[in-house]
Simulated assay, not measured.
Amino acid sequence: MSLRAAVLGHPISHSKSPALHHAAYSRLGIGISYTAIDVTEQLLPSLMRQLRRQPGWRGLSVTMPLKTAMVGEVDEVRGVAKALGVVNTVCFEEHADGTRAVGFNTDVAGIVNAVRHAGARTPSAPVILGGGGTAAAAVAALSELGAGSARIFVRDPARTAEVRAAGESLGLSLAIRPLTEAAKATAAADVVISTLPPRAADGLASEIAALKTSTPGVLLDVAYDPWPSLIASVWEAGGGAVVPGLEMLLYQAVEQVRLFSRLEEEVNASVIDVMCDAVGLPRRAL
């Protein structure tokens, strides 16, 4: 029986996940095919019913705009995904009563590892840009890094249910403000996690540049295409450390490979190296 996995989202043609996963499974010597499936939130339930009927599925990577909707499509949610109500990973597990779809969230580990690699430790004045499912994962990541509070700047303050729920669940105090007020606080932050879509932070980047001040902290820009983003360029020009979203994608994909392959110990530095090579990242170890 052929083994399968896929990344789901809309749009999905830009995804680097197939390159990361193919490299890992080739290095591991395990025959798991990995494809990209373009699916909207409206079509997700019918797709999941279809996949459940097909043998050989090991797992799904879940990207925008499906991370919240996927919670209702799995049989069980585990770990931090349960606290967040946001799923970016689905594993298919065989049980005596049949196959069960289990939801996880590896975005949190991806953010934590990416920010730590850039030198950040315990943020005292962190900022999150955006209010969706990835922003909720950023709240959990900041909590894991030891932050007690965070300022969140969003385009639409009415659409912040996910981050508010994450803050309440994890005990992280949140101050949610409109994105139009973000420039000064963002420039002064020790850790900034931008979960905005590509180019959505361009206006803010111009405002930060106009401040003509230093940006001493660490910026993780989850959007990785095009790269460098305008906000990343402005941040680096101000003296700060920039972490590309591709690095977060790498770290969260490593956790997915461990789950999908069921070869926890074998997913080691050599596997991470070939995953880095597949997307043009410098080689690094977790």
Rank of each mutant, 00 (worst) to 15 (best):
T89Q: 08
A118Y: 00
A101R: 01
N88Q: 06
G98K: 04
H117L: 15
E73T: 13
V87C: 09
A101E: 01
N113S: 15
G72T: 04
G79M: 07
L84Q: 03
E94H: 09
E76C: 09
V90M: 11
R116P: 00
E93I: 11
G79Q: 08
D97T: 11
G98E: 03
T89D: 05
V77P: 04
I111F: 12
G85Y: 04
E73G: 14
V86I: 15
A101G: 06
N113G: 15
G72W: 03
A114H: 12
V112H: 01
N105E: 00
R100D: 07
F104A: 13
D107S: 07
A118T: 07
V77D: 03
R78F: 09
F104W: 15
N113T: 15
R116I: 03
T89R: 02
N113W: 09
G85I: 10
A81D: 04
D75A: 12
A83F: 10
V102I: 15
F104M: 13
K82G: 15
A120H: 04
D97L: 03
D75K: 04
A96D: 11
V87L: 10
V115R: 02
E93Y: 08
T106I: 09
R78W: 09
V108E: 06
D107Y: 07
K82Y: 13
V74R: 03
K82L: 15
F92M: 01
A83D: 15
L84P: 05
A109E: 13
G98W: 06
R116S: 06
A118M: 02
V115I: 14
T106P: 08
A83R: 14
T106W: 05
V74N: 06
N105M: 02
N88S: 10
D97S: 14
D75R: 01
A81I: 07
A114E: 05
V80P: 07
V112N: 00
V87E: 01
